[in-house]
Design a protein around this nucleic acid. Sequence first.
RNA 1: GGCCCAGUAGUUCAACUGGAUAGAAUAUCAGAUUUCGGCUCUGAGGGUUGGGGGUUCGAAUCCUCCCUGGGUCACCA
Length: 594
Amino acid sequence: MSAYLQQQLSPVIQSYFEAHKAIQPESFEFQSTRKDFEGDTTVLIFPLAAQVKMNPEALGNEIGAYLKENSNDVADFNVVKGFLNLVLTDQFYLEQFQSIYSIPHFGHIKPTQNSPTLMVEFSSPNTNKPLHLGHIRNNVLGYAVANILEANGNNVVKTQIINDRGIHICKSMVAWLTYGNGETPASSGLKGDHLVGKYYVIFDAEYKKQIKALVAQGHSEEEAKQNAPLLLEAQEMLRKWESNEEEVRSLWRTMNEWVYSGFSSTYSNLGVTFDSYYYESDTYLLGKDTIVKGLDRGVLYTKEDGSVWIDLTEEGLDEKLLLRSDGTSVYMTQDLGTAQKRFEDVPSLSGMVYTVGNEQDYHFKVLFLILKKLGYSWADSLYHLSYGMVDLPSGKMKSREGTVVDADDLMKAMESEAERIATSAGKLEALTEDQKEVLYSVLGLGALKYFILKVDPKKRILFDPEASIDFNGNTGPFIQYTHARIKTLLQRVGAATISWDSQLELDPREREVIKQLSRYPETLQQAALQYSPAVVANYIYDLVKAYNGFYQNISILGSKDSQLRNFRAALSQKVAEVIASSCGLLGIAVPDRM
RNA sequence: GGCCCAGUAGUUCAACUGGAUAGAAUAUCAGAUUUCGGCUCUGAGGGUUGGGGGUUCGAAUCCUCCCUGGGUCACCA
């Protein structure tokens, strides 16, 4: 709406200046009027007053009077200090709504072939343990950002890099061989990822025992840590894996398969999907070409022992190792190579978003800087979607100490919490058992996702699983509830014919709803610009609040005037649509009834 | 110690990117209310935006020093 106003009213103000003043400002700032003041939109007079050297209030009055006279949209005005508040006509609002109503996917821009392609990486799990609460934030966030970018007219490829090799996987393998007795997901009834995670925990416990034993025998702690038989075994296994020994590879494949099938059920419960996958076992050797290129260009340098470094001290950072003295690569090297590979795999790719926790802020700062120094044109369109940790009231989550909140457990807990609340509220008799199950899951996950997404990604979240999530107030279920209510309302109104008198007189609450609706496109743009689903989440809440205010004292069914009823039904319907589509971006399902 | 991020009602979060008297929800308190689907409505209290200084018509927002919490500074990933 403000864009529209800008278009409509700016020229009028321009012409005022042309007619009356020597100076012609280039642009005018419109913003919505605060609730306590009368008016719909506000023009800031301060900057203008400074230019023409006038008292802001006097200038505001002049411009206001001019607008009232020369614009059809302005019904009235008032000036407070340097703020010119404009009251817009009902016709203006009706036209606004008319045009909003007629747009099918209002606010969403459909990508075309020529639209930029962006890759969004998220999830990126290790294959030695199940997903936990931190992963949930990662997944939900990455998925939502991908959707938001898509809604803004980008082609989006959702991908993840699976950390499927390394010493941690070998630890699980060793423990399974030593203590597993051939246990499989089928034989144990455990989800594959949980089974493998179980042996990772066993490894750590047994490893600690061995260290203790060695220390008791008189070894130093340092020595014991490095020479415990289990660790040596795991290291040996990693070597065998790297030299491609079939026996090890085969076990590795088997156990990874268990994990993947476990993950896939977690993902499907969580409602996230991917378009492509990268496996570290395929990419961990990449990047050496890039290093050569960097050496040729003189961006990198070699030390006496043969290791390769980059000097970033000029940028206020450190020197960074890129290749070990034995020629093997490090994490950074892989990421350089993987980035390059992705731009080769997807020729139309123009940018990437990495959804990774903020403990890697420094890593990505360096990564992007190196790519830039290497001269890749796309280096500027890389973005690290950094998010804060999820803490528990009891402190940090440590997988080894069993203080993590498991993703599967948490989702299940949310569902039963939803069941408890929904059952006590009643009104579910009409649903079949299956429908109820679906509903509980929709509500529980909606609550969880909304709780996570409504806060700024950068900030850390304090998550209290015991006190669980409130289903009232600014929550997912509250929004879902509003949607369901509109749906049943519309059912009772019957098919609304989409026509109403352009002379309708609007209630302030209806104007407020239209105002909120019209904010949707800008909100999406802003969310994409900031890579922040929180912007969308808070918008939905504003919309819902405005609608509830409207619904509160205005009878939709009871209105005798069919024109008015049509209008209100249409307004309700559009609100429901916008709620549904914006919730869709966040990955939150909206039920038609509950 | 260097660098990065955060600090807003008791609590969880906002504040349209420099705009008006910093807003919601929740919790607490006071009163009213039995039906159109949050048990509903009204109202109240609650803030030195971590602190000091600066920039200007105007600062939670920008600059600068402190304070607190977290992260990060590996030939780990």
